[in-house]
Design a protein around this nucleic acid. Structure first.
Length: 598
RNA sequence: GCGCCCGUAGCUCAACCGGAUAGAGCAUCCGCCUUCUAAGCGGACGGUUGCAGGUUCGAGUCCUGCCGGGCGCGCCA
């Protein structure tokens, strides 16, 4: 089932072809001038240039072939040669009925499903998630859902950073701070039974401890070469599975994992694979051997690298560092091995890396190495970068104290505001405590996610806590509010229906301007979804969800439903329930859940 | 220095292979609750799209230069 825009486009394209103009110029778009038309085609202007003819003349020839189309209430030529199309109320009503009857609320699926991996999340072991992790989680989750909904087979992978230099740093810092744990490492390395004191000290470590030890260690490594070299050595030891180091690492990973799951769960973010860099450890040695055998590996300054520079590059792209001079695997090494792993286990057609824009060069290097090694075909690996989240001063966001804001604190803060607002609205007392909390959580997540997703992912944006946790205007809670109003209305209609008052939905009959707008907005869903899919840009879908909410809200204000005559009421109930279904679907694809009431 | 990204209303952001009058939200001001949830609806105010050229019937969008900002540039991830 095709939307009106595409259906009309096909007709106009045929008309272009019939008069000897390129058919692709018959493309129909939503009108820029809703006062004049519902849809428009600008192709006559381009056709005139190509054919050396007068644009209005071409437009006239096209329009002649469109006259009599029962779907069109009017076809007019405006300005230099715009073709303005207005759809008849009957055609619009029919389309609304079709959307109402459609399982996917008017959205299409892709013709040829692909196997897709979305790589997002990427938090590091030993570090609590902060606001900087918000974007990858939110955008990645939405892209995953959009791709899956459109019919692709999609895997979402968390891809933890758990096998790099930060692990060596942390092992060093923890053993320095806790002699009992240092002794534990020695005992395990020597094959002795470790003491209880050591075991207990290890089990007592929390993420907060890491939060204190790690930044200090990272800072010292920058100025103290001996300290840095020891951490590198420990990283290499870990990767060589030195027993004591490995035991510590397992514990670090476990402690972090629990906290990460809490944060991801609170955000409604789920992964199909909870893999990390360490999961490809076993592939690294054979991979290095294979790269060597293929002649791609070069010794350079004590390290082993793959050169990826190409002729025509505008800049000097550094090589991929595969083995460090300490013999350890690097960020790029595990990334390359992960590409190999995914090829062997899933053989994806496309891998989408939803990672900070600052890592664009890194991915370009890794991708080129992967193409050279034959681990992926050119174009199958795509980095979807996003901008950084800045404070109101334009610098990367920091709290007032200068530290990073923990993700969990941000969620809790926003949830607190949601609770306040619910109490103000007098909902606090009437709802069971459990539902009250669930609503506050959903409102908070909607606020955070929508604030992020309404921006195009590629650009940096200002993180303003007040704006993020605002509940009025173009916000997540506004969208939830519209959905909840429909639910309330439909509950009432169901009630009256039960009492034999005949409040059932029925065929749509568009009459009022607000009804037209709502139906036209419902029709635009597939185009918005397709754009979000093609451009990997959820903001296109977020924009549609907002427009739909707005169209519904205007309809709700202008068109009484329950008090209307039976046929009108039936039509409006269908419009309302269809708007709700499409809105909930769009919100779900953005990763936002809708409560029953608020 | 080289490369990438960005510059749109007071603020935060949109803008469909280049199209008509550049759109939203916030803020400010004015209206609307005895009828379906006012976290709402209607209206007003607000712009030389950083600057200067160029291509085009037509440029926020493409090209060149300049100004301003952010980021990246092999043993962190």
């Amino acid at each position: 089932m095709s939307d009106l825009k595409r259906a009309l486009g096909e007709t106009v394209e045929a008309a272009f072809a019939a008069i000897g103009a390129p058919s692709e110029l018959g493309r129909v778009t939503a009108s820029d001038r809703p006062d004049l038309a519902d849809f428009q085609c600008n192709g006559a202007l381009a056709a005139a240039k190509r054919l050396g003819r007068n644009p209005r003349e071409i437009a006239t020839a096209v329009v002649e072939r469109l006259s009599g189309d029962p779907r069109l209430a009017s076809v007019e030529i405006a300005g230099p040669g715009f073709i303005n199309l207005r759809v008849s109320d009957a055609a619009l009503s029919q389309r609304a009925d079709a959307i109402a009857a459609d399982d996917q609320a008017g959205a299409e699926t892709v013709g040829q499903p692909r196997r897709v991996i979305v790589d997002y999340g990427g938090p590091n072991v030993a570090k609590e998630m902060h606001v900087g992790h918000l974007r990858a989680s939110i955008i990645g989750e939405s892209i995953k859902r959009i791709y899956r909904f459109r019919g692709d087979e999609v895997i979402g992978d968390a891809h933890f950073g758990d096998w790099g230099f930060q692990m060596g740093l942390l092992i060093g810092a923890v053993t320095d701070a806790h002699p009992a744990i240092a002794a534990l490492v020695e005992d395990i390395d020597a094959g002795r039974e470790p003491t209880n004191a050591g075991q207990e000290a290890l089990l007592a470590l929390t993420l907060d401890d890491f939060g204190e030890l790690y930044p200090a260690a990272a800072g010292r490594a920058k100025t103290d070469p001996a300290y840095r070299d020891r951490a590198r050595k420990l990283t290499a030891d870990l990767q060589a599975h030195r027993p004591g180091c490995y035991r510590l690492w397992e514990r670090f990973r476990e402690v972090t994992r629990v906290a990460l799951e809490r944060d991801f769960h609170a955000l409604g973010v789920d992964f199909d694979w909870w893999k990390g860099e360490s999961d490809v450890d076993h592939l690294i040695e054979p991979m290095v051997a294979e790269l060597d055998a293929k002649g791609l590996l070069v010794d350079d300054q004590g390290a082993r690298i793959v050169r990826v520079a190409r002729q025509g590059d505008k800049r000097d792209l550094p090589p991929l560092l595969v083995v460090s001079s300490e013999g350890s695997a690097m960020y790029g090494t595990t990334d390359l091995a992960t590409i190999l792993d995914r090829k062997q286990t899933f053989d994806p057609d496309l891998v989408i890396y939803c990672v900070d824009q600052r890592q664009a060069d890194h991915f370009e290097i890794v991708f080129r190495a992967a193409y050279q090694a034959g681990y992926a075909a050119e174009g199958q690996l795509e980095h979807i970068g996003f901008g950084t989240m800045n404070g109101t001063d334009g610098k990367p966001f920091k709290t007032r104290e200068g530290g990073v804001l923990k993700l969990n604190d941000l969620i809790e803060m926003t949830r607190g505001k949601a609770r306040e607002r619910l109490h103000e609205a007098g909902l606090g007392e009437s709802l069971p405590a459990e539902e009250f909390e669930a609503i506050a959580g959903k409102v908070a997540v909607a606020a955070l996610k929508f604030a992020d997703l309404q921006n195009f992912r590629g650009t940096s944006y200002v993180f303003d806590l007040d704006r993020f946790s605002s509940f009025e205007g173009k916000t997540g809670p506004y969208l939830l509010y519209q959905a909840v109003r429909v639910k309330s209305l439909l509950r009432r209609a169901a009630e009256e229906s039960k009492n034999g008052e005949g409040a059932e939905p029925g065929p749509v009959a568009i009459a009022e301007p607000a009804e037209r707008d709502l139906a036209l907005t419902l029709d635009a869903f597939d185009a918005a979804l397709a754009e979000a899919y093609d451009k990997k840009a959820p903001n296109a879908l977020a924009e549609h969800a907002y427009r739909l909410s707005q169209a519904f809200s205007k309809f709700y204000a202008a068109c009484p439903i329950m008090s209307a005559a039976p046929a009108v009421r039936a039509s409006r109930l269908t419009l309302a329930s269809t708007a709700l279904r499409q809105l909930e679907l769009a919100l779900d694809l953005l990763g936002i859940a809708t409560p029953e009431r608020m």
